[in-house]
Design a protein around this nucleic acid. Structure first.
Lengths: 356, 356
DNA sequence: TTCATTCGTGTGTGCGAACACATATTTTAT
DNA sequence: ATAAAATATGTGTTCGCACACACGAATGAA
């Protein structure tokens, strides 16, 4: 493995060219004669020189401000505490390198809070932004201004391809629907009825939902299962009482449902409903939130699909870090693993990522 | 947010004492008069001074040698390339901090190669060791010497609790068997016969195998399934021809098998056998090696359980890094996630961890 | 009292890279 | 041909810290 560390001085000695000139080719700063440039580039390549990040950071003395725009967690153990943790982990690791992060939280059900925060961010004029572009129109406006100022931004959790972020780090939502269908069909007979249950209040970006549903249906198509076995119910709330009422209503009319796919992180609500009424319907849901962990353990939820939330946050900040300090451009799309969580492996996911 | 970073010089200005003396109290080096010491300590406290880790590392110029003792990749397939990658990733990230890693590869089927490498490592007298303690007795001897010299060592992949490593980073093997049973029973009827298939040549640590089997049986017990549905076959080779022959022999005598759990990373062999002979038997196996990925995609393997191999390597080196530079002691056991891999999510695992 | 220790303290150099500035070399204009 | 402009390259300082070294003052032994 790599033993000696090569420094600029080593390159200078090797090529008989001063460190200043070498610095110029590294940073593409100033003019350098073609032959020297070539010689230097070859030497860098041959000796496998990589600038010492510590020295670079120290000499630069520059701070990089990164603003993080994500939803508030209405209560702890909520979904968004996980990407947040990933960002914090990365932040701790990179803080000596001058990376300073600042969180801007918005209300998931209130675009105006989102807009307000984007304005605060623009006031600070940071070096980079991490955001969950959950409001399409507002995100578009925001991003436009970032672009004007040449501020790089990465999307997490959900993507808007047209907005051309530096990178998207999050799930392949369509595939997540596909997997949900596969998992659900492994616990119900595929000639039985399945329910896709959407719950939301306010105006979340519904394109994700339709993508998920498309993926789900796709599984049926590809496996020659009758798509009319799929029913869809949309409840305009996540309030327990309302959800229970709507579910009751629905189940009375549709007694033949044997499995439910809950398209948000509230699968535990459905599980609770089933348990309460001693209904034997299988459940597949999303996200490793506290209540779903409970649901898995109690058996009311069969599968949870988790989209590597902690890594999303970590990777997002890491992506900016690499851009700032190495000028390394990331790939445009970084799909995260879609973890299949069951009662038997859930603890490992919790524990492993909570030890920093 | 923290505004200004306080430096030693700031303390010097504030107290009207030279940086040399301040350095002395920070490092408890040399003599300092009580009144100055007090003044300095107060200033450090008041201004909340924290030494800049980058500058410190740079100035110290100290290297930390870490030896990595893992099997060569010749067999089983590519598995060990994954932990290796994790270590390399971490190595790249920490190299500027003076972490220097060196690999020592041993032959999985030859203890003497293991012993030889442990001797080389002892010759180098490193600051830390990462090892896969696959040979119990030899590892014990090695570790004893490390202990004498106060060299910290972390285990990956497989644990020997008695040997009291700094930390173990790897799977909960028993639980992995349990999960395998659950997954297999989700694709076969649990009143049907299942086969646990062990394959190995040479002297791998068989305690892992028996743990896995115990976990598998445990699932049956806990779920009230008749344990006599489980059969066990052990083949003393991973050679395709021999495996095929033994499988043929076994299947002829045991026609009622509907599912196989392969306890090493050679599930693809079994899948291939089934395909070749057009046998409809479901397969669950371990490890995301190339051939198993193929097996998943072709459908011959239903589930693969992957034990976060890349993270194992990464976390192992990270653990030593934190010990060296922050004097931070890790938790004794760091179980990694047991990922459930299916055809539909396999690509995400491959891609996400190959982009460094 | 004198010289040698010991103690207490300040100064200077180096770690590797970035950047400003100074200097050398070539090109262009007159 | 020569000055001016443009280009190419080298030098020196800085970042924050660790550590070696220098040097004066206090202490002790003779």
């Amino acid at each position: 493995m790599q033993n000696k560390k090569i420094t600029i001085q080593d390159i200078a000695n090797y090529t008989n060219i001063s460190v200043g000139t070498i610095d110029r080719v590294i940073h593409k700063r100033g003019k350098v004669s073609p032959d020297k440039r070539k010689k230097i580039e070859e030497a860098i390549d041959k000796l496998n020189f990589n600038p010492n990040l510590l020295a670079r950071t120290l000499a630069l003395g520059k701070d990089f401000f990164v603003c993080v725009l994500i939803p508030t967690e209405t209560y702890p153990g909520q979904y968004w505490s996980l990407p947040k943790r990933g960002i914090e982990d990365a932040g701790a690791q990179f803080k000596d390198f001058g990376i300073i992060t600042k969180r801007y939280l918005f209300n998931l059900f209130d675009e105006s809070s989102f807009i307000a925060q984007t304005n605060s961010i623009l006031d600070l004029n940071p070096d980079g932004v991490i955001l969950a572009p959950l409001f399409t129109k507002e995100s578009s406006l925001f991003v436009e201004k970032l672009k004007e100022r040449n501020i790089p931004y990465v999307f997490i959790d959900s993507n808007i391809p047209e907005l051309d972020s530096l990178s998207y780090i999050g799930p392949d939502v369509k595939q997540s629907g596909f997997i949900a269908a596969r998992l659900l069909n492994s616990v119900i007979r595929s000639d039985k009825k399945a329910l896709i249950l959407n719950m939301f209040k306010g105006i979340e970006n519904s394109s994700a939902l339709s993508q998920i549903e498309a993926g789900f249906r796709n599984y049926y198509k590809e496996n020659g299962i009758n798509g009319s076995n799929i029913q869809v119910l949309t409840i305009n709330s996540t309030d327990k009482e309302i959800v229970f009422r709507e579910l009751t209503k629905f189940y009375i009319k549709n007694k033949e449902i044997t499995g439910v796919f809950v398209t948000n992180s509230e699968a535990h609500l459905v599980a609770e409903f089933h348990t309460l009424h001693e209904i034997n319907i299988r459940v597949v849901g999303f996200d490793l939130v506290k209540e779903n962990i409970g649901g898995l353990k109690l058996g009311g939820i069969d599968y949870v699909i988790s989209q590597s939330p902690v890594q999303q946050g970590y990777r997002a900040l890491q992506t900016l870090f690499k851009l700032f300090l190495y000028k390394e451009s990331p790939v445009k799309i970084q799909y995260v693993p879609l973890d299949i969580i069951i009662k038997e492996n859930v603890d490992f996911y919790i524990d492993f990522y909570s030890q920093t």
